[in-house]
Write a protein that binds this DNA or RNA. Structure first.
Lengths: 107, 107
DNA sequence: CAGCCCTGTTCAACGGGTGAACAATGATAA
DNA sequence: TTATCATTGTTCACCCGTTGAACAGGGCTG
């Protein structure tokens, strides 16, 4: 829980859409409401996100989830690390595909 | 549990190494002993694998896990399906990497 | 024989994920 | 004003897959 991938995605969503409900966040990340709540709290706890009380125009109440400077920095680092991991995974997948191709031909 | 990926990997391991212990199988697939046991039993149940009682030369007791004709056929089908899925995943990953590259440059 | 080792099998315990239910608050209607 | 509704964050009992220690069976060795 709260692995790098989720951390990255949450920070990304919040950065480009700070007024977002936890339910919407959960929907976008394909996780449950409880998990979204847990992860978000952890990020606030770590000081990467600040939850401003927020009174919007219409029937909104919730918060404005703003990335702190540390949050912005963390997101940049996570993005690079995430990219690196995805590149490795991409390469690994290519090898796996090659093996599967051979396997298919063999039969 | 017992998703296509595990099914495929188990059948592959058994095909190329029928005298294998459940512990070794678990180690190779990076799953627990209990799960390996469960999956294996399910494959036997489905008639894809036959567990012959097996008395080996030295201190081996266990079984010989042989793929039945249905098992061989199922494995071939699974291999193709698995390859297809991996290709899609590979493509998806490429797009994701492209987005991450932009994200890194943007900052 | 006893001890050892390698099997497969079991199942209580653990832990992460879930989402219904709750509390709070502002907007809207009567 | 008061009542109702809508939308939010928060909680937590429940679910269920996973784990691996512990057990039982059987062959080998000394």
């Amino acid at each position: 829980m709260l692995d790098d991938e989720h951390r990255y995605k949450i920070l990304k969503e919040l950065q480009q859409d700070p007024d977002i409900s936890q339910r919407e966040l959960a929907r976008r990340l394909n996780i449950s409401l409880g998990k979204a709540n847990f992860c978000l709290k952890a990020l606030v706890e770590k000081g990467l996100v600040k939850a401003d009380n927020f009174k919007n125009s219409r029937n909104k109440v919730g918060y404005l989830y703003l990335l702190t400077p540390q949050g912005i920095e963390a997101k940049a680092i996570l993005t690079k690390r995430f990219l690196q991991r995805k590149l490795e995974e991409h390469e690994r997948l290519a090898q796996e595909i090659e093996q599967l191709r051979e396997e298919v031909l063999k039969v």
